[in-house]
Amino acid sequence: MDLGTTVWHTQTTGDTDVEKGPDPQCSICFTTYDNVFKTPKQLDCTHTFCLECLSRLVTISMDPDEGKISCPFCRHLTPIPKNGPPALTTSREVLCRLPKHQQHEENVWLEGEKLCYMRPPKTGMPAFCICTDIGASARGARAAPQTRSRPSLLERLTNWKKLLLFIVIMVLVAVIVLWPLQCIVTTGSMRCVPRPPQPNLITTSTTAPRTLTHH
């Protein structure tokens, strides 16, 4: 009896950077995906990151002439649409792994250096707009190298004064510590003045001469 061989196939996906757990997270900020600012966006290389992190990367590192962003993992370039990172492809596979109330992607748009979202009205509450700044960190990263300027002449003189004062203090400390030691070695006491020689005391006994009296 010929028994057929059973072959098991394992299907793999391109989202290798998404944690295989109940709460998939962005591999840059390690925040759980959602359907608003943390919407999972897929690059052309199939790596997936949240919308907010990709928007910050675009603000910092995108070449304005090429209009492309480099993947943080494989450096593959992905063109950025005219409407910005919110128009990137949404990873439906990751979105379907979220809770049911988050599986519908909300409308998020780019307004200057902010990601904005219009929150729908709820019972007794009107609709309102929520925005998150994606340009503040980029400006800080760019301004940090420019703030390093050469020290002025006054700062240099101040540094030299501090160095000179430190040298003087170290010399005084060395003198205060080493001078008594030298005195102890050379003179045998804390005083550096040598002791005068002690006169030899010679004790002599004198006897009064006897006077002879003649009777």
Rank of each mutant, 00 (worst) to 15 (best):
M1V: 09
D2F: 12
T5F: 11
V7D: 09
V7S: 06
H9A: 14
Q11F: 05
T13S: 12
G14Y: 01
G14P: 01
D17T: 09
V18W: 04
E19S: 13
G21R: 13
P22T: 08
Q25T: 14
C26E: 08
I28P: 02
C29F: 02
T32K: 09
T32N: 10
Y33W: 06
V36P: 00
F37V: 02
K38V: 00
Q42I: 05
L43N: 05
C45P: 07
T46C: 10
F49L: 03
F49E: 01
S55Q: 04
L57E: 13
I60N: 08
P64I: 00
E66F: 11
G67I: 02
G67S: 09
C71P: 03
C74P: 01
R75V: 01
R75D: 09
I80S: 13
P81D: 07
K82V: 08
S91A: 12
E93F: 07
Q102L: 15
Q103G: 05
H104F: 10
H104A: 13
E105F: 03
E105C: 04
N107R: 08
V108A: 05
E111F: 08
L115G: 02
L115V: 06
M118Q: 14
P120N: 05
M125Y: 03
M125H: 11
T132F: 00
G135W: 01
G135R: 06
A136K: 00
A136N: 04
A141H: 02
A141I: 02
R142D: 02
A144P: 01
S149T: 14
S152C: 09
R156D: 11
R156S: 03
W160E: 10
K162V: 08
L164I: 13
I167M: 07
I169T: 12
M170F: 11
V171W: 05
L172Y: 04
L172C: 11
V173G: 13
A174E: 12
V175D: 13
I176C: 14
Q182I: 04
Q182W: 03
V185P: 00
T186H: 08
T186K: 15
M190F: 15
V193G: 10
P194M: 10
P196G: 08
P196M: 10
P197S: 10
T203L: 13
S205D: 11
A208T: 15
A208L: 12
R210C: 08
T211Y: 07
T213K: 10
H214W: 06
H215K: 05
